[in-house]
Design a binder for these strands. Structure first.
Lengths: 339, 339
DNA sequence: CTGAAAGCGCTTACAG
DNA sequence: CTGAAAGCGCTTACAG
């Protein structure tokens, strides 16, 4: 079988029509008579013709590709999000050009240029911060950007997150109600808005209950730092008996360290709460109490916001924060008086 | 800031050279004098010019995009693989157009056509089976395909896996040496070569030791079926005291079900072994004994094989199976006499 | 509804 | 080394 790249011109010849006619038949919303359409479709089928998307992109100026920049795939929340984003975008006729942002080397700049070179119609940045220099570049290229699971002070940029402040607040209420002696907080990477917002809500909520963070360590969202942070947190005269970790990924490490390295019982000795509700949170080994990020809604809003911006260059940016529920499971002590 | 799409023609004008000259400066391996190059680069910088990859693809017939079809992202092995594949391909100047194969709806066919429409230079199919009809389509389009973590009988198709037969064999030797009373096997999805090969190696290895699979259930690589399979496996007079699950993802479920639903101790009552060595396998809650898939080598071979095929249409297909070591951890009893 | 023509932004022989 | 010209496979005004 020869590697024949069939062109619209060949189909046109076989069907006995013009190339324009072939194009119209394959462009929805274009006018073609039933008769022409039939002839063209038959010829196309016989030849195995399919429109070349690259050529289409070239002339239309629309590649129908979305650049997705993502990092931190160890956190189960992201693979899940990529899956949902991909499905939602495919439904809209878009496809994803994916770029792993190597946070180690911080090579996001190069990567972004490469994305732009492919003439993507829009960019979704998941869990990566774009410098204002990069944003300028996107803007001058006329490519809209939406931040996924990260927000930014600039009101000129769209972002979609869960309501992290409110989520942190809920955790505070839940923990305060169980009246722990000491409260610990394992922070994520300080550069992330999710970390800052969750902590802010947590502190606020604790204050409302006349409490505060008694011990704070930084886990940076990563395994090794989180283990070290946990060890440090419990190496004191009065260690906490309730700990909030800024995401599930860290909460798992906290639990493992507590149970298997320090010989403590969760939740009897220490109550642990996370944030995200990744699938693993429901696994029986962890059975983690956590705040659910409403991934489906976040994805829907992300896609909607991005498409609005693609279709209307003057669409105003949106900062969306979606409320997610606290999911109570066995890793945490219940508030006094609850079942 | 205006959304100026800067073209090579504009750069040429500003630099006072021809469009061809501009093109040459941005095409490595093309001839341009130092003087021309300097003028062009300066003009390009001033204008913020970058070559349009879509136009390049159009004329060169090479999009430098690779289609990556992937499913089953719940299994941590795949996000990890996507990350590594992406990095390796980026190093070679290729980028990834990603497609989630929705195994639920089995819409792989449509998806593949869409990939082909984008004129990808090659396709990597991870954990998805392509029908021979689809393969024909790729072949007639002249687009090479390599299967990642899945193999196929057809010798005309390239594939890269770990040595699953040998891996299963190693697990058998390890388990048999601990002299369990009854041996259980939790199978993955029967359509997957990984499942078949791991089981074949396991059966073979057991036979060498005068043993066999005493109880077999199917977990289909998924959580719920695996839980049900485990429950069924232990609902009998003589349940197994050693279980091999065809991948880590299932092994975790087996362990959780045993410990938290059946009140059994792992490894004291039951020894559990998995396959993959995903990051979670090292987490202390599981501390899973497993066979490591050499992901880095698998990725390197996949990229190498694919590029060889892209650069030489007559390159012969390769079936590569890379040996991976058994990693002994706490979830399994040690063989008699070992530490 | 339909066709001829121009053009999307590049690269690549072909001359010089 | 460099430029003029053709062409990659389409879509889209423009006439008819």
């Amino acid at each position: 079988m020869p590697e024949t790249k069939v062109t619209s011109a060949q189909v046109a010849t076989l069907a006995g029509v013009s190339q324009s006619a072939v194009s119209r038949v394959f462009t929805n919303g274009a006018s073609a008579s039933e008769k022409t359409s039939k002839k063209v479709r038959e010829a196309a089928l016989k030849l195995g013709y399919r429109p070349n998307n690259i050529a289409r992109a070239m002339v239309s100026g629309k590649s129908r590709m979305i650049g997705l920049v993502v990092a931190y795939l160890e956190n189960q929340f992201y693979p899940q999000a990529v899956e949902k984003l991909s499905a939602a975008l495919q439904d809209q006729g878009y496809h994803i050009l994916i770029f792993m942002a190597n946070t180690a080397t911080g090579k996001i700049d190069d990567v972004l240029d490469e994305i732009l070179d492919y003439q993507v119609d829009g960019i979704i940045a998941a869990s990566v911060a774009l410098s204002s220099h990069l944003l300028d570049r996107c803007q001058s290229a006329g490519v809209p950007v939406v931040l996924f699971n990260r927000s930014q002070d600039k009101r000129t940029l769209s972002s979609v997150t869960s309501d992290n402040v409110r989520g942190g607040h809920k955790v505070a209420e839940f923990i305060a109600a169980s009246q722990p002696a000491q409260i610990g907080y394992i922070a994520g990477w300080e550069g992330a808005s999710t970390q800052r917002d969750r902590e802010q809500g947590f502190v606020q909520g604790l204050a409302n209950a006349g409490r505060q963070i008694d011990v704070r360590e930084v886990g940076n969202f990563h395994k090794d730092s989180t283990r070290a942070a946990t060890l440090a947190m419990f190496d004191r005269a009065t260690p906490p008996d309730a700990v909030f970790a800024a995401n599930d990924h860290m909460a798992f490490v906290v639990m493992d360290t507590l149970r298997f390295e320090l010989g403590l019982s969760v939740p009897n000795d220490v109550s642990v709460v996370g944030y995200d509700d990744v699938p693993t949170a429901a696994w029986l080994s962890y059975d983690l109490t956590t705040v659910r990020q409403p991934a489906n809604q976040m994805v829907a809003q992300t896609v909607q916001t991005l498409l609005a911006q693609i279709n209307d260059a003057n669409a105003s940016p949106r900062q969306i924060a979606i409320d997610g529920p606290l999911i109570v499971r066995g890793s945490a002590r219940r508030p006094q008086g609850s079942k």
